[in-house]
């Protein structure tokens, strides 16, 4: 989001003063204020819809804010109490580590698969490319809840087509196989659903980036005897670096906060071993009515995300500032 907003705002730089202005006349105050006036509405909207709730969340995270306080509209200030009780809760650390591991796996697989699909798209004949792009866009266009419901049916314990198919293909007896009995299998299913949903954006974005790779460069490298992999490593990847950075950092943000997929796949009653950051936050606040604690989890999530994506955001900013 942030990256997009910055690029949107970029054209609002003040225009160079026209030479035709009579010398000695002072720049009018209005002209100097123009850029700020132009950017003000966007800033106001951001402050209203993002800043206020964020500040509010930080404030609530410093209070004991249960159901009684919610109804009375008054929390009890307890300083860092919610944070210290989180730090002492082994379940919370389990959730953090689980989310980090899940994010690492899902982001790597997403970016790797998306790169392969993008390279494939580039080498396809036009009709096949249209077909594959159409399929990707369809995935993208499917509402998440609908898609996750479909996946849930496919992996269903009693009526699921996956169990039927695996048994039919004689890959073992999968009749009444429960995909959520063991967390590792359950998370594999969740990861498949998340990656499936994330691929279209990543693949199409990378494919768009591939069109920027000058074909003369590739051709001359090939003439010089570079192998396909060498071309990819030494030409394609460096040119696509900004795109990789954007796709990776957005994927990190999305996958670390993943909510709908685990929540819906597990019938809105996720058990302990399936808690990820966002699910844990939701359960603590809206199920157990500990809004203070839930807000503290949210603040920690933001902090972790900032830390995790700091490297990528810095790289992007450097790339944006570097002369093209």
């Amino acid at each position: 989001m942030g990256a997009v907003a910055t690029t949107d705002a970029a054209p609002v730089t003040p225009r160079p003063r026209s030479e035709s202005l009579p010398a000695g006349r002072r720049r009018p105050a209005l002209a100097r204020a123009t850029p700020y006036l132009l950017i003000a509405p966007a800033c106001l909207v951001l402050a209203g819809v993002l800043g206020y709730p964020l500040l509010n969340m930080v404030a609530v995270s410093l209070q004991r804010y249960g159901l009684g306080q919610l109804i009375a509209h008054r929390g009890n200030f307890i300083g860092l109490g919610n944070y210290t009780s989180l730090a002492r809760d082994p379940q919370f650390w389990g959730v953090v580590l689980r989310s980090l591991a899940f994010t690492a796996v899902v982001v790597s697989v997403t970016v790797a698969l998306a790169t392969l699909i993008a390279l494939l798209l580039e080498r396809m004949s036009r009709p096949m490319r249209m077909l594959l792009t159409g399929g990707l866009v369809l995935v993208w266009a499917t509402p998440v809840i609908v898609a996750v419901d479909l996946w849930q049916w496919m992996f269903d314990y009693e009526f699921g087509v996956v169990n039927w198919l695996l048994t039919f293909l004689r890959l073992g007896n999968f009749i009444h196989h429960n995909w959520y009995a063991r967390p590792i299998e359950g998370f594999t299913v969740i990861a498949i659903v998340v990656i499936w949903g994330a691929l279209p954006f990543a693949a199409i974005t990378l494919f768009a980036g591939l069109s920027q790779v000058p074909s003369e460069l590739v051709e001359s490298a090939e003439v010089d005897g570079a192998s396909g992999f060498q071309v990819f490593r030494n030409i394609t990847v460096p040119i696509l670096r900004p795109i990789f950075l954007i796709v990776t950092s957005l994927s990190i943000i999305w996958d670390f906060e993943v909510f709908i997929q685990p929540y819906v796949l597990l019938n809105a009653r996720p058990s302990g071993p399936f808690m990820t950051m966002a699910v844990f936050m939701y359960v603590e606040s809206f199920r157990v009515s500990q809004y203070g604690l839930g807000s503290a989890i949210a603040v920690v999530t933001v902090a972790l995300l900032l830390a995790a994506s700091f490297y990528y955001v810095r790289q992007m900013v450097e790339l944006a500032e570097a002369p093209a």
């Binding site: 906060e257 909510f259 709908i260 950051m277």
Partner: peptide, 20 residues
């Protein structure tokens, strides 16, 4: 952005609604 995940945003928005 894509309505893919809602996490902090959803929580914050709901809290705001509740408080507002």
């Amino acid at each position: 952005m894509r309505g893919k995940h809602f996490g902090i945003g959803g929580l914050a928005a709901a809290l705001t609604l509740a408080l507002a």
